[in-house]
């Protein structure tokens, strides 16, 4: 097996107490190699953000382990944890909530530089800030240094968020719906900027999105993991997932997603599910979570046993479904 930069083993996270308890992430295992991009797709509330925060060390797992550069992050010593803390950064979805409204762009970017002594003094901090703003294409830099977040557009704020994440030279970035709240016309340039960081700086990405088309565009050379109510149901390379999906849920998604191309979208044959209801986390169906809706449902099997992610075919295509066999 290859050495992963970051990996999750049987990661589970619950929220709430007693009766209210829900399992947002249930037994997720995955690994991301250095320089790779892994996309996490799935519908609202399926646990994408929670998984991202668990990997970024912003939430503690209820059970399971996370290893970063081979070390278990929650049992390692303080110094290693600090290395992990700075090595893994997150970019949030909402450009209006992710920057502190009372700081200028320069203050936002120089705080981590100075705090961690990544630069010698204020002058060097300023130079580095200018450099970072250039990396994220916020030029002319002078126009932005003294601006407050409310003076920037959504796209510009997201760029500042990216620059802030880059201050500590991370090797892994969790981009949680980082472009879904900015306009279509601006989205592409943001995505391309992130791709460029991946190429030039070798940053590894966990790219979280609910938009399959974006996942395809950003992670064409990487892999996609499809989540359904807390678990990964399919995980494979992007072209394989788009063209040769195996899990009935993934297939249903691909058949349902409307396309920005009239002929393409009108020729799609939607897959009829047995039910429209998305299961509530409070009241999960036994066995496979998808069985009440699944067209391949087999009584006595799917509603009894929860399927595990297993390899089908070659090149590491993994599917969690009883009815799909390699």
């Amino acid at each position: 097996m290859t050495e992963y930069l970051i990996e999750a083993h049987n990661l589970t996270r619950q929220f709430g107490r007693r009766r209210e308890r829900v399992t947002a992430v249930d037994d997720v295992s995955l690994g991301i190699s250095e320089g790779e991009v892994l996309c996490l797709v799935g519908e609202s509330g399926c646990g994408k953000t929670t998984t991202g925060k668990l990997l970024a060390g912003l939430l503690k797992p209820s059970s399971g382990r996370i290893r970063y550069q081979g070390q278990d992050v929650w049992t390692q010593d303080k110094e290693s944890f600090r290395k992990y803390r700075l090595g893994v950064q997150i970019i949030h979805q909402d450009p209006y909530a992710s920057l502190n409204p009372s700081h200028t762009v320069h203050q936002i970017l120089s705080a981590p530089l100075l705090h961690h002594n990544l630069v010698n003094g204020r002058r060097q901090a300023r130079e580095r800030v200018v450099e970072l703003l250039q990396i994220v294409d916020l030029t002319p830099v002078e126009d932005f240094l003294t601006k407050y977040p409310h003076q920037l557009s959504g796209g510009q704020r997201q760029r500042v968020s990216v620059a802030r994440a880059l201050t500590v030279n991370p090797s892994f970035i969790v981009a949680d719906e980082a472009v879904s709240m900015v306009d279509v016309s601006i989205r592409v340039s943001l995505l391309k900027m992130l791709s460029r960081l991946r190429m030039q700086l070798g940053v590894t990405f966990l790219f979280i999105t609910h938009d399959l088309a974006l996942a395809k565009f950003f992670a064409w050379e990487g892999r996609i993991a499809v989540m359904y109510v807390g678990s990964v149901v399919e995980l494979t390379s992007t072209p394989e997932l788009i063209n040769n999906a195996q899990h009935p849920y993934t297939k249903a998604l691909l058949a349902a997603v409307p396309e920005a191309d009239p002929n393409l979208t009108r020729r799609k044959k939607p897959i009829t599910l047995r039910s429209q209801d998305i299961p509530s986390l409070r009241n999960l169906p036994p066995g496979c979570r998808f069985h009440p809706r699944c067209p391949l449902f087999e009584e006595g099997l799917c509603d009894r046993v929860a399927p595990k992610l297993k390899s089908v075919g070659e090149n590491g295509h993994q599917v969690a479904c009883h009815r799909v066999t390699g």
Partner: peptide, 25 residues
């Protein structure tokens, strides 16, 4: 708020978070 989480991820420490991120707002 997200920017507090970002500050945590950047390892900026409790003092910075209280005095520079929370109180000014």
């Amino acid at each position: 708020r997200d920017y507090i989480e970002a500050a945590t991820a950047l390892g900026l420490g409790l003092r910075h978070i209280i005095f520079s991120e929370i109180l000014p707002n």
